[in-house]
Each structure stands twice: as C-alpha cells, then as structure tokens.
Nucleic acid binder design. Structure first.
Lengths: 183, 183
DNA sequence: GACATATGTATACTTTAATAAACATCAAGA
DNA sequence: TCTTGATGTTTATTAAAGTATACATATGTC
C-alpha cells in the first residue's frame, strides 16, 4: 500500500514546488493542517479520502493525478524471499514472484512441477486471463475441453473463467511462469 | 468529498454482488473488517488509502476503478444558496454556481457588473483557461495586450496565466458566465 | 416446528489520522 | 549583532477510522 502514499507524496511535493507555495499556503488553500501535509509529503502518512479530496480541490487538480506514480521505476523482487504454496503433496509448488498490485493489474508466479505432478483450478471470476510459459521441461494444460501440450519456450494464453488443469507428464522437473491478468 | 465515498460505495457493492460474495468473504480476502466494509458500502465511511488499497488488492481490481463514478448523474445546484464575493465596492459580484470538483476539473461562476464596474486579476498558475460568455449587456475584456469587446451571446476563450481585466463600459447591468478550466 | 448456518447490522473498544500550538532553523534588513 | 518574518519539524491532544464481538434476521434442512 505504501506505494500509493509515495505517489501522493511525490505528486503533492511536485505541485507545491512548481507553484512556489509553502506548507502554510497549501494548508490555507486546502484546509488540511500543515503537520499532516508535511507527513504526506514525506510519505509517512495514511490519509483518508476526504483529506486527499481536500488537497485535490484546494490545489485545483484531479483526484487521480494526485495518485499518479512518477515516471521512473527501478524495483527488484528477489525470488529468495518469494512466498510459496504447495499442492499435490509438495510435488506442485507455486512461488509468488511479483504479487498483485492494484496499479499494475497482474501478478507473476513461478510454478515447479515434479514428474507426474498435477493441479486443478476451478473457474476464476470473469475477466481473468492466464499466460503460461514453459521455462524448463514440458507441461500439459487443459482449459474447459481444450488441451495443449507445451514444450520449453512455448506460451499458452487462455481465459481463466473455466476449470483448468496443469500437469507434468514427463520424467523431469518442469518449471512454468504464469501471469495472471485481471479485468 | 462525499462524492468519492459514494463512488467507492457503488463500485465495491457492484463488484461484490457480481461475484456473489458476502461481506465475510470480502473481509477475509482483503483483510478489512466486515463492519468497515459495510460502512463503506453504505457510503458512510471515510476510508484511508491503505484500506482502499487492501480492498483493491484483495478484489484484484485497480485502485482507480474503485473510485470511478457510476455512469449516470442527476444533480441540481441552486443559484439561491450560491456563495458570492464582491469587488470594486460591491459593483462587481462573483457567484460560485458550480464549485470546483476534482473529478470534473473546472468550475462555473456567474458575474454581475454594474455600469462602469471593473476587475483585474493577476496571472493564475500555468494551465488555467477562462471561457467567458456574455449573458446580458456588454463587456470589455483584456488579457496581456489583447483586448476584446463582447456583446450578448459572445464568448471569449483565453489562457489565464497572464494578467487580465473585466470591464463593463455600458450604462446597464452586465452578466457573464465564466468557466475556469484547470490543467 | 426447532435447529443450524449464513449474512448483514449495531455496539464497545483500540488504534491512528488529523489538528493546533510550540519549537527549531534560517535568511534578510536595520 | 540582534530582530523579524517566513518556513518546516516536533509534540500533545482530539476526533475518527478500524477492529472484534455480539446481535438480529433470514433461509434452508432435518
């Protein structure tokens, strides 16, 4: 969540500096206390919608532009501390590489399947799209009444609003990358 | 501000009902308490960004889509209780018809000018556009070194980042509509 | 009809967002 | 050098967001 506070911090500071305003000026224009504004600009606050609203109104800017992320990113996710879940008695392992983020709209998993490992998923909510890439080994994937056997380097895209299965029919470890895209 | 709470209320309820989830389900998926969710759906809450973030993440939707307004509006602003400010010893009166709203990005004023009334504005911040329409009477408007005499029904558009003047050079009351557009 | 389960509502409590006022810092200007 | 004023920071207090629990109301099911 602190992502959003950072955005707000960045955007507010930017506006304030562009217009050569002091914290007192902004406080007077928005009705938000100076102390709170300082906290917000430092990204150390968790403001309510009404506070953000007051800032947007006072600064004559839009609500959403205040929450816009700054242009550049440079963010590392280490697979070391990626949380994971096991299925099929530990032979099917799912690692969360990039967790879901409301700004991004998708999440990335790494899946390890021991020989013969198997996993079945019920239909997700409407509008979910799965993109599977075989990093290593081979996998057989079914969705609804469609089936496909994928080899290393293959990618399959299908909508997740139907029951689907992942299976490793080979004798070696298979590794997949799975992107779940929402809405 | 309650505009925003209404949006959130509407969108959350919509998502929850579309997916056939109970408040308990959403509470478990998002980590936000059931009581708070109920309040939010009724539009009686003023949540923090972290709460909205948790809802967005748990529901696998975007932050902004949760704050999107529903399609239809039907809202009356009465000119009776419009606040107003006087200039030029009360001969130049500004009525706020539609106050600024961060979702909309502009505001609407009605201006009444007695004969000979006059008003000068300093340059606003970059990116402000003024649209003046003469409802009744005549007005002379200057912006920077440009001048224009407007009659009933005329409209003038100019950027407000330069000093500008409004003047009623006639012997009758002049009424203007002024739209201030930001950014 | 009585029991069980699920769902939304109301209440008491804890945590924290937001305010107001005092404080520190610094740059003119006399 | 000593004010004075402007700006951002810290601190104490208040107001309210958020939680957890208990309560009310349905909707089956035996």
């Amino acid at each position: 969540m602190e992502q959003m506070s950072r955005n707000l911090a960045f955007q507010l500071k930017k506006i304030r500096q562009q217009r050569h305003l002091s914290l007192d000026d902004v406080a007077k224009a928005t009705g938000v206390s100076k102390a709170q504004l300082a906290q917000i600009e430092k990204g150390e606050a968790n403001p309510t919608v009404s506070t953000i609203w007051k800032i947007a109104a006072g600064m004559r800017t839009s609500f959403s532009s205040l929450l816009q992320p700054p242009t550049a990113h440079f963010m590392k996710y280490s697979s070391k501390d990626a949380p994971h879940v096991d299925e099929d008695e530990g032979r099917y392992r799912v690692y969360s590489i990039i967790p879901y983020n409301p700004e991004r709209g998708w999440e990335l998993y790494k899946i390890e399947m021991e020989p013969g490992a198997f996993s079945r998923s019920e239909a997700h909510t409407e509008g979910v799209e799965e993109t599977v890439t075989v990093i290593q080994g081979q996998a057989t994937i079914s969705a609804g009444d469609m089936h496909e056997k994928l080899e290393e380097g293959d990618t399959l895209v299908f909508s997740g609003h139907q029951p689907h299965e992942y299976k490793n029919t080979t004798e070696a470890l298979t590794i997949l990358h799975l992107i779940l895209q929402y809405k």
